[in-house]
């Protein structure tokens, strides 16, 4: 199997989606000739033409509205929001319109839209680019929020997202674009939405995480192994809706849990996971659930972001606290 970067997997998935279904179109700021500011759509306009892959004027709300309008002509748009920090400009299209669309039309119309967008910190972007804003969309009924952690998942989940008739917010961790490589199966395949993945098996403690923090958690698990702590890492893959069965199986196996997220602590995905575990699996717990999250401040300026972001050491410390609890 070929080793590919995360962003190569995303480009490949879009290439296959365009080839597989003539109703798929890709648009966003600079996605055409330039291939997007991160080259996620590199070469796709040249291959599929300007009718299939094209630039938009610089206005996120217009992009969102356009995607919604195009569904009336049976298109399946993949729209790119250049950075998820810009999502506020398109919140009505996402949360007010496409999320509610199927409901409002009483199931008679669907909104098969994929909203691709990079999120997450650690790459010294200008302010308002790097926030982890998945919570904003995950609390909105009617949206699926998918956050792949590996190149293979990025490809398989993106193709599933395109096939889904539900609107999918597909959040790509900016830090992972070129920093990780992984085996990516050839050709067209889909990875099921709503299915978490036990990416590292262990028996002592479950680290439940998603997106960029999966890699931070795996690094922490390697360090913990040296101290004799066998950590399981659960990659949620989809943060809304949650795969509670996979979470439950892991909790029942280890009895100890740490949730880890890159977003700030308040009202996060981690909080949701913790509350579901408390409600459903509390009798399996041997210790209070630990949480690793960014501090509850505004996302900091570039020079300070690596101090601020949760690190492997934070996870190691929290895991030890949970494992040593009697």
């Amino acid at each position: 199997m070929a080793q590919k970067t995360y962003i190569q997997a995303i480009t490949e998935a879009q290439d296959l989606a365009l080839a597989n279904d003539e109703n798929v179109v890709i648009f966003g700021e600079d996605v055409g000739k330039n291939g997007g500011v991160f080259r996620a759509t590199d070469g796709l306009q040249a291959k599929y033409g300007e009718d299939r892959v094209f630039n938009t004027p610089l206005a996120e709300s217009g992009i969102g509205g356009m995607a919604i309008g195009m569904t009336t002509q049976n298109y399946r748009p993949i729209m790119e929001i250049q950075f998820f920090g810009f999502v506020y400009e398109v919140m009505d299209s996402l949360a007010g319109q496409m999320a509610r669309g199927r409901f409002r039309f009483h199931g008679t119309r669907t909104f098969p839209i994929v909203v691709r967008s990079p999120y997450g910190g650690g790459t010294k972007t200008p302010e308002m680019h790097a926030d982890s804003l998945e919570g904003l969309v995950a609390q909105t009924p009617g949206l699926r929020v998918v956050m792949p952690a590996t190149p293979a998942d990025a490809k398989g989940l993106l193709l599933s997202a395109v096939e889904s008739n539900d609107p999918v917010i597909f959040l790509e961790n900016l830090r992972l674009y070129r920093s990780i490589r992984g085996d990516v199966p050839e050709g067209y395949y889909t990875t099921p939405l709503d299915k978490a993945n036990v990416i590292r098996e262990g028996k002592d403690v479950s680290i439940i995480t998603y997106g960029g923090m999966v890699h931070t958690s795996l690094a922490a698990a390697e360090e913990l192994a040296k101290d004799g702590i066998d950590a399981e890492v659960v990659d949620l893959r989809t943060v809304s809706p949650l795969d509670l069965d996979t979470i439950g199986e892991s909790v029942e196996k280890t009895g100890r849990v740490v949730v880890a997220q890159e977003a700030q602590r308040q009202a996060g995905i981690g909080a949701m996971v913790m509350s579901e575990i408390s409600e459903r699996f509390i009798m399996s717990l041997k210790a209070p659930i630990g949480r690793v999250a960014a501090p509850d401040s505004v996302y900091p300026f570039a020079l300070a972001e690596n101090e601020w972001l949760p690190k492997a050491d934070d996870i190691i410390e929290k895991v030890k606290e949970v494992v040593n609890f009697d």
């Binding site: 217009g62 509205g65 356009m66 919604i68 309008g69 009336t72 298109y75 299209s93 007010g96 319109q97």
Partner: peptide
């Protein structure tokens, strides 16, 4: 939501043109 129909109409119009 006042105005949302305008951006949605633009998308429908582009779709009609492409079809």
């Amino acid at each position: 939501i006042i105005g949302a129909q305008y951006v949605e109409a633009a998308g429908a119009a582009l779709g009609l043109k492409m079809r």
